[in-house]
Amino acid sequence: MPEGIKVGKLRLSPLARYILTRALLIIPTILILYTLVFIVLRVIPGNPIEAALGTRYIPEELKQQLAERLGLNKPLYVQYFEYLWNILHGDFGESLVIRGRPVWEDLKARFPATLELTIWGFTISVLLGLVTGTLAAVKRGTKIDTSMRVFSIVAYTLFIPWLGMMLQLIFGLWLGWLPTSGRLSARIQLDTITGIYTLDALLTGNLPAFIDAVKHLILPSLTLGIVLSGAYTRLVRTNLSEVLASDFIRAYKARGIRDTKVLRHALKNAFIPIVTMMGLQFAILLGGAVLTETTFSWPGMGSYLLEKVTYRDYTAIQGAVIFFAFFVGLISLIVDVIYALIDPRIRY
């Protein structure tokens, strides 16, 4: 790994070097994940041909021919390295089920949808968790604290499809305020650039599309955000209470620093473990939006993977997982950098 740093003979700042090292660590992570997925896919019963045929009968020779065409009759290690080789060249392969459909095209279409939902849901959960957790910690032992804790437990144990359907029922069906499925109304035109609709609408100055996209986002991201905020409430409450009871907070007070400032310093200290959680949560969110996506017919990666697993579409699943792994690696890298920026004690 150090070779990568030396190659350019560049003088890198410690932070740049740290980022580079962390970035290189993504490669083995992806390799391990790819290997695991490859093995699991071959071990679970069924294969793409059988999955596509279902219960229909087909002569054995024809099956052989199909397997040959899909490259499924090659020895496993050949399949393993061939795909790896292709990925290294940026080729995610073609779907085994829909012949000739490049996996990359699917990823390009589906991933931004998941990312957009994730970002919104994530933001809502963090904001909600921060506010409720801070209130609970500051008003520790009071009724406010108790109600925040009840909120966190209820939120945490809510089942996403149930909450989703309740919101759909109330705001979609009864009140008729918000749409309950999809990303954009059929009548709305939007030129996509990034595939993240709210961003695209802003970039192209398309206000109606922006409003429409936001309306579609509210219910699914609220569902995700509420359920995930519970964990933050608890985490913020615990960490902040601990920091508020620490010696340096008492020292601030002994110097007569006003409460709002003290709270700000305390929050910064309480934030370190929360940032870790945020990184982890974001990764889980990316993959775990499946339930939300199915509840709200959201055309994202969750529903895509679900469909592809049913068809045992090896290349599509492998491609999606590798892409995910890369993205999750990127997120954790960003988290580590944020860490290093907040906490002077971290040496890189």
């Binding site: 620490s246 010696d247 340096f248 008492r250 020292a251 310093h265 910064k268 906490d343």
Partner: peptide, 16 residues
């Protein structure tokens, strides 16, 4: 009235 504390290791904000 000013005050100094028992444990100097934990009485300063580590992040500032």
């Amino acid at each position: 009235i000013g005050m100094i504390f028992q444990d100097p290791m934990t009485s300063l904000d580590p992040l500032r």
